[in-house]
Amino acid sequence: MAIFLTKESKVLVQGMTGGEGMKHTRRMLAAGTEIVGGVNPRKAGQVVDFDDRAVPVFGSVAEGMAATGADVTVIFVPPPFAKAAVMEAADAGIGLAVVITEGIPVHDAVVFQAYAKQKGTRVIGPNCPGLISPGQSNAGIIPADIATKPGRIGLVSKSGTLTYQLMYELRETGFSSAVGIGGDPVVGTTHIDCLAAFQDDPDTELIVLIGEIGGDAEERAAAYIAAHVTKPVVGYIAGFTAPEGKTMGHAGAIVSGSSGTALAKKEALESAGVSVGSTPSETAALVLALLAAAREVTHN
């Protein structure tokens, strides 16, 4: 199994005919994603050829869903139009909207996140790499060739780059799903949402949680793990050397005083029983050691 995205998922791409949309649609198709259409009101009725696959362009998300049964949309539209794109997808009743766009104003994100939640649409992002269930489907910009093997590790991460690195480090072990939730101050799907889904997924044996400085999402995730997660969790926090008061990489990665520091997050996770690595490679080694120990217990 997997969380949020499976081989049955039918995917639309809003902004498919733009430069980034074209590039990543081709990559998603190559990864086996069932992309059933693009959305661009100015190019409705056209067909775009991607190597051996012809993908129709629809005038709206609702039109695309009606014609294809799509249940996922990946959004590549520019920041000024992202709010309208997400709200259109939510109005159409789509189940999952993956917002890749970065640079979206926080006020816009607050509005469309609340609107999508009210309509029952799960949003992943914005400013995220998307999600992948290896061997099944890939919705976003995660390079499919770094982790092609399905497995029993679930990964949730704020950082796109660290998502890729941990997937590469653990590529021989494999993943049920990897979800890049994005590092903006306001995101739709949280660490806790993914922890809950992985906890309920019978094919996920161990969970990797990647966080970074800023905010209190990781501390809240630690409290949730302590109360609700019975599977082993391994963590990594980026930003131990970040100077106070300076935004690092993501809009949400800023430390103010003692709040949101990497050390505070590490301590909160460890107090919940999470093994926390000091580097990505050490984190991967902790994962492999825990999996090996669990299998030794099972065999005995």
Results as ranks from 00 to 15, higher is better:
Q113D: 10
L263I: 08
H299Q: 14
L290F: 08
E34N: 14
V123N: 03
P243R: 13
I210R: 03
K43E: 08
I146Y: 15
V187T: 10
L288M: 13
G38Y: 15
A54M: 10
A67G: 05
S259K: 15
V106F: 08
S256F: 10
M167T: 05
V55Y: 09
L155F: 10
L12N: 14
T230P: 00
A67C: 09
Y168Q: 10
D184H: 01
G32A: 01
V48F: 07
E270Y: 06
E218R: 06
E296F: 14
K83F: 12
L12D: 11
D51K: 02
T33F: 05
N40R: 14
G151L: 15
S281V: 15
S275R: 12
S259I: 15
V287Q: 06
P80M: 11
G188D: 01
N300W: 06
G125D: 03
M167E: 04
R42Y: 09
A289C: 02
G45P: 06
K117N: 04
K231N: 08
E282N: 00
L290A: 10
G235H: 00
A97P: 00
E244K: 07
I207Y: 10
M65W: 13
P105A: 01
A285Y: 09
I141T: 04
I225E: 02
E205Y: 11
K149V: 09
M22K: 10
G160K: 05
G18N: 09
Y236K: 09
D200P: 05
L209K: 05
V255L: 13
Q113R: 03
M16V: 13
V48L: 08
A272C: 08
A294K: 07
G211Y: 03
I153K: 10
Q199F: 00
V77I: 05
P185A: 05
S275I: 07
S281R: 03
A116C: 06
L286G: 04
G93Y: 11
C194G: 04
I237V: 05
G140A: 12
N138V: 02
V233P: 04
A222C: 04
S271I: 04
V74F: 03
V287E: 12
I141M: 09
D200L: 09
L162I: 15
Y168D: 02
I181N: 08
S271V: 07
M28E: 01
C128M: 12
V111G: 00
L286W: 06
G154W: 06
T189P: 00
R42F: 07
D52N: 08
L286H: 06
P41W: 15
G249E: 11
K266S: 09
A262I: 04
I3F: 05
G215E: 03
G174V: 06
V297G: 04
L263D: 10
T68S: 09
L209Q: 01
P150R: 11
G183T: 07
A272H: 14
F4V: 00
P56K: 03
G160N: 06
D200I: 07
Q199N: 05
D49N: 09
A114D: 12
D184E: 03
T283R: 02
V39D: 13
D203L: 14
G32W: 07
A293G: 14
A54C: 12
T68F: 15
R53T: 13
V57A: 03
D201K: 03
S259G: 13
R295I: 14
G37Y: 15
